[in-house]
Amino acid sequence: MTTDFPAATLEAHQLWLAYQRTSVIEGLDLVLPAGRVTAIVGPNGCGKSTLLAGLARLHSPSGGCVLLDGDDIQRLPSRTLARRLALLPQQAQAPEGLTVAELIRFGRQPHQGWLRQWSADDQQVVHDALRAAGLQALADRPLDTLSGGQRQRAWIAMTIAQQTSLLLLDEPTSALDLGHQIEVFELIRHLADTGRSIVTVLHDLPSACRYADHLIAMLDGRIVASGEPSTVVTPALVRQLYGVECRLLPDPDTGSLLFADMRLAADTE
């Protein structure tokens, strides 16, 4: 395993996030493990995407702070932040005809400026991002001609080109079929192996258990459980989060959790 990136730690202290007067997250504390894949899970409307937006500074906190390696992200200049933390929002849209390589080039913008125009280094980074995402053969294809999985890999490649230690992804596999989901998850695992810290919102709990090192389970804007999936995910937690009864079996080969016999709990609220 090669680690190309310094470990980045992201923490939230007494974080409050609100839309107008409605608080979504009230006084949340959080420390994300460096160099690992963290999945934020929970039912719809539990505040997981809002939390991710807060961690990425898309959403300014109404109280508390988010610290990136000890620096308050609200105090960092935008471009500095974009060189340390990359974000892929949910269902990002590209204009028609934009090619894979053109999209990935946007990832270099935080590193460019008046005095630093496009360089051979940038070109190399784009090349590396294409390779990391397995998209070399598709570099000049317009995004709208690709499969869902390839397109999502291209977007992730754009964030790879930002060369940040920390990657935040909002539901990167929603709207993808199973094969394409696995395509994206394997890319995420591969990126974690290079030392990046990855935080991703997921709505699919079994995939989160399979691919994440660390799990944060949210309900009504609070964290109800966090830790290694195989230890924190229990039938009781699944019932609490989703109102679903299930049995959990360890995978005989990998030890990750398998979900069996899922059904609605009798007394769903």
Binding site: S78, A92, Q93, F106, Q109, P110, T159
Partner: peptide
């Protein structure tokens, strides 16, 4: 970068 959406543009530091 705005052509990629407001959130992506912000994520790129704009």
């Amino acid at each position: 970068s705005l052509a990629l959406g407001e959130r992506v543009a912000k994520g790129l530091g704009h």
